[in-house]
């Protein structure tokens, strides 16, 4: 028996919004430690890794490890039927071929349930090595989304250059060149507005705008985003999900032809 309950459906809606542009379907691996999802996008350029800890749920029970392959378009249809403040419960029997998603209004007067067929997905799990990153940048998630959106107008690619002075995002195309520099913030009143750079050595990497823009669909989940970079390895873009876990996106760099 698997049962996981969250106080507010809005969190699950935001999580789904954060992955459904990249993935058509995905396997949710459930164990007593929580729910994990790891999947590459169709073109195998990026990888999404979602971790939801069992202690972040209002109620969590998972008697046996369970892998639930879900069509994310179908799940989006179901979540559209929930009000943001509804409680949401996901339930499945061991070895079931369906999952039930139930919504309850705060006053318990409306209860709806949706049974969704599960899929058998060929899952290819990738081992992600531990990396000592050359640069780790923490910045407001909204600012990162704005930069990715703005620079996508000028080129398919963004060059991210991180030094101890700051981080520079550049795009160059037919229109010309765009550069956005962010300096590390001095003292800030609000932690969520800070730009913090931890640099071991400077790094310059090139990435496809369209994936960065897809990652920023996670912006509503978190006030801050963390970018971890190292020469010649994938960028890690991480959004914390408060009290519940995190979503990490890995993006393969572009290299000189």
């Amino acid at each position: 028996m698997f049962e996981a309950r969250l106080g507010q459906a809005t969190i699950l809606k935001k999580i789904l919004d954060a992955i459904k542009d990249l993935l058509n379907e995905a396997t949710f691996d459930c164990s007593d430690s929580g729910i994990q999802l790891q999947a590459m996008d169709n073109s195998h350029v990026s990888l999404v890794s979602l971790t939801l800890r069992s202690d972040g749920f209002d109620k969590f029970r998972c008697d046996r490890n369970l892998s639930m392959g879900m069509n994310l378009g179908s799940m989006a249809k179901i979540l559209k039927c929930a009000n943001n403040e509804d409680n949401v419960t996901m339930k499945a029997q061991d070895n079931a071929d369906t999952v039930t998603i139930m919504f309850e209004s705060a006053n318990q007067e409306k209860v709806s349930d949706y049974e969704m067929k599960l899929m058998n997905l060929d899952q290819e799990h990738l081992g992600i090595p531990e990396t000592d990153f050359s640069c780790v940048v923490r910045m407001p998630a909204m600012e990162f989304a704005r930069i990715c959106r703005d620079l996508a107008q000028f080129s398919e690619s963004v060059v991210i250059c991180c030094t101890k002075e700051g981080v520079k995002f550049s795009a160059s195309g037919d229109v010309g060149t765009a550069n956005i520099k962010l300096a590390q913030t001095g003292s800030v009143d609000k932690e969520e507005e800070a730009v913090i750079i931890e640099m071991q050595e400077p790094v310059t990497l090139t990435f496809a705008c369209r994936y960065l823009n897809a990652f920023t669909k996670a912006t509503p989940l978190s006030t801050q985003v963390q970018l971890s970079m190292c020469a010649d390895v994938p960028l890690v873009v991480e959004y914390a999900i408060k009290d519940l876990g995190h979503i990490r996106y890995y993006l393969a760099p572009k290299i000189e032809d």
Binding site: M40, H44, V45, S46, L47, E124, H125, L126, G127, I128, P129, S157, T206, A208, V233, P234, Y250, L251, A252, P253, K254, I255, E256, D257
Partner: peptide
């Protein structure tokens, strides 16, 4: 010109 690499070339199958 830059070439897009694949994520699976960095991470090994488990």
């Amino acid at each position: 010109n830059s070439k897009q690499t694949s994520i699976s070339s960095f991470f090994k199958k488990e």
